[in-house]
Nucleic acid binder design. Structure first.
Lengths: 158, 158
DNA sequence: ATTGTATTGTTCGTCTTCGTACTATTTATT
DNA sequence: AATAAATAGTACGAAGACGAACAATACAAT
């Protein structure tokens, strides 16, 4: 039915490749993300937990004072998951939660001055990582890639 | 410095968008993957834990009898993480571990007949999911997308 | 042959995320 | 105004993945 690589002595150094499944958007999306995330975290050891949540911090920087559930939606996490994350980032004085006058249930999120600085520095390193990751893909195609990913995100949100 | 949406009454239903960061491959890769994974799992409630590990099962189906560390590499997980996963899939009789004559340390992984059937069925549903996810992207671009993701994966592996 | 090094699979403790339930507040309905 | 329904944030227990350490086996170097 399928090849059985273990029967003969054709052991390669190469990574296993799957069937049709392996050539799907879903499969490669996942694998690429796992590798990218790990790769980025391995290279950045300072700044505490901030690197791991750089995406969130970017959103907060661009949209200061937003309530937590909106932030959770933006990055695709549960609001309950965000609590612990924000607790830690607040303890490290990257950001802070403050009351919002409009809604006494909500607590808006702002970056601290230190947080802004950290984000700026990490963004530069993220750009390096981006470059390494997409090396060999022409700029034009990269833009198209980003566009298509945005398209997929929109499809999945509706 | 930045807009402060909370000051005026321009509350939209729309999701927050970040700064330059938001338009990066890394950011969208992660967000798209999170949404895709959740979306897929929400829609498929039967077949136990198999749907979550369909990627792995596809690899096993295409490469029967491979040792566990090769499988871990292929899907970007730690070999220690794979142990629990395989335990569960084995308990559900989707796959089985058997000794390999060539190396007495290793235990190769095979799909059971039932596992093969489950994979076939899930693959069809994954194709549906794929279609929903990529709706609106022409087939030609989709291929290019898959190709670029593969390129990124290769870059991250080296 | 023997000794040292690398590899395979596993266990174990830790960290992260999730899902559910709960409180406080806001919004909608009567 | 009074009551019902929805929403924001949080706490807590469960599940998943990680990293480090370990035993068994394989490979390499002398």
């Amino acid at each position: 039915m399928h090849d059985d690589n273990s029967s003969s002595k054709n052991e390669q150094e190469s990574v296993l490749r799957g069937g049709e499944m392996e050539a799907s958007v879903g499969y490669r999306l996942r694998l690429a993300q796992i590798l990218a995330y790990r790769n980025f975290e391995e290279k950045i050891t300072d700044h505490g937990v901030a690197p791991r949540y750089l995406g969130l911090l970017g959103i907060v920087s661009a949209n200061p004072g937003q309530p937590q559930n909106k932030l959770a939606d933006a990055i695709g996490l549960q609001k309950s998951s965000l609590v612990t994350i924000l607790d830690r980032l607040e303890k490290e004085e990257i950001l802070e939660r403050r009351a919002i006058p409009q809604d006494r249930r909500a607590r808006g999120v702002w970056l601290t001055p230190r947080g802004e600085k950290v984000v700026t520095e990490l963004a530069a390193r993220a750009a390096d990582h981006e470059e390494r990751m997409a090396k060999g893909i022409p700029a034009e195609d990269r833009e198209r890639l980003i566009e298509m990913l945005g398209h997929i995100i929109d499809n999945l949100r509706s």
